[in-house]
């Protein structure tokens, strides 16, 4: 039995997954062009800068567990961590990854290890690269602030879900003269990142990172599918507003079902 008030949600879930699968299928014959996302392009530049300066790259996949509603942001963040690890492996640059939640730790460890393996630098992987800090918010913040200062970093990448510590991280990165790249879906923390960091991945830009970086056909196709789902949402809102103006509330009623 369908639960009342959640029917529209189910329909939209199916529509979104449907458009995603359509996009993936379409990509097999024609790869979509994804518009430039400056924040993601800047990652390669930041790692290059750290390599030239002989300094470290710092990154953290945020302060959130993967068993919560923000898991999507953490998965996207781990994709970015993997990309950075491949670059640092390739250029022999020192990498420091700070993890907050215990469940994210084995994933981050595996992601970095695999990146070094793929780049043929298995022996360069060091257990000290991926560091568990604390799931206690400010203990994590304290540890990250300390690492940024002590590890002589030239590039800081803060991606995933963040809370009030976001602005502390951004400022700490700027204070040590590092390039700061941040990305989150949290509308509360985005303003601080946007004000203090060199590059910011806003909301869905972060969630597109995996596809953008990997250039993988299925993932790129999925981004096109996401666009189609947004186009449908766009149409639903516009139609709903026009009909509402004419005192026809059918769209709002359907969305509340």
């Amino acid at each position: 039995m369908l639960i009342e008030g959640r029917v529209a949600g189910l329909v939209f879930t199916l529509i979104t997954i449907g458009t995603m699968l359509y996009g993936i299928n379409k990509a097999k014959s024609k790869l979509p062009n994804v518009r430039r996302i400056a924040g993601l392009e800047a990652i390669d530049e930041a790692v290059g800068r750290a390599t030239e300066m002989g300094k470290a790259v710092f990154c953290t996949p945020g302060w959130a567990d993967i068993t919560t509603s923000t898991a999507g942001a953490t998965f996207a963040a781990l994709d970015i961590v993997g990309h950075i690890a491949r670059l640092t492996a390739r250029y022999d640059t020192r990498l420091v990854v700070a993890v907050s939640y215990p469940n994210v730790y084995p994933l981050a460890e595996q992601t970095v290890q695999q990146a070094y393996l793929v780049e043929g630098k298995r022996e360069k992987y060091d257990q000290d690269m991926v560091r568990f800090t604390s799931s206690e918010q400010y203990a994590y913040a304290a540890a990250v602030l300390g690492m940024i200062q002590r590890e002589k970093v030239a590039a800081c990448v803060f991606v995933g879900q963040f809370a009030s510590e976001a602005v502390d991280f951004a400022e700490a990165a700027v204070a040590v003269g590092s390039i700061a790249i941040a990305g989150t879906t949290s509308t509360y923390q985005l303003p601080f990142f946007a004000a203090a960091c060199d590059y910011t991945l806003i909301g869905e830009e972060l969630l597109t990172a995996g596809a953008y970086i990997s250039k993988d056909t299925a993932r790129l196709g999925s981004v096109h599918g996401q666009d189609l789902a947004k186009l449908i949402a766009f149409g639903v809102m516009l139609l709903g507003a026009i009909l509402c103006t004419l005192n026809i509330n059918v769209v709002v009623d359907l969305l509340s079902k």
């Binding site: 809102m237 709903g240 507003a241």
Partner: peptide, 12 residues
């Protein structure tokens, strides 16, 4: 998603 879409369908 759906709650935000419904809240945006406002009479113009």
């Amino acid at each position: 998603l759906t709650k935000q879409l419904a809240s945006t369908a406002l009479p113009l």
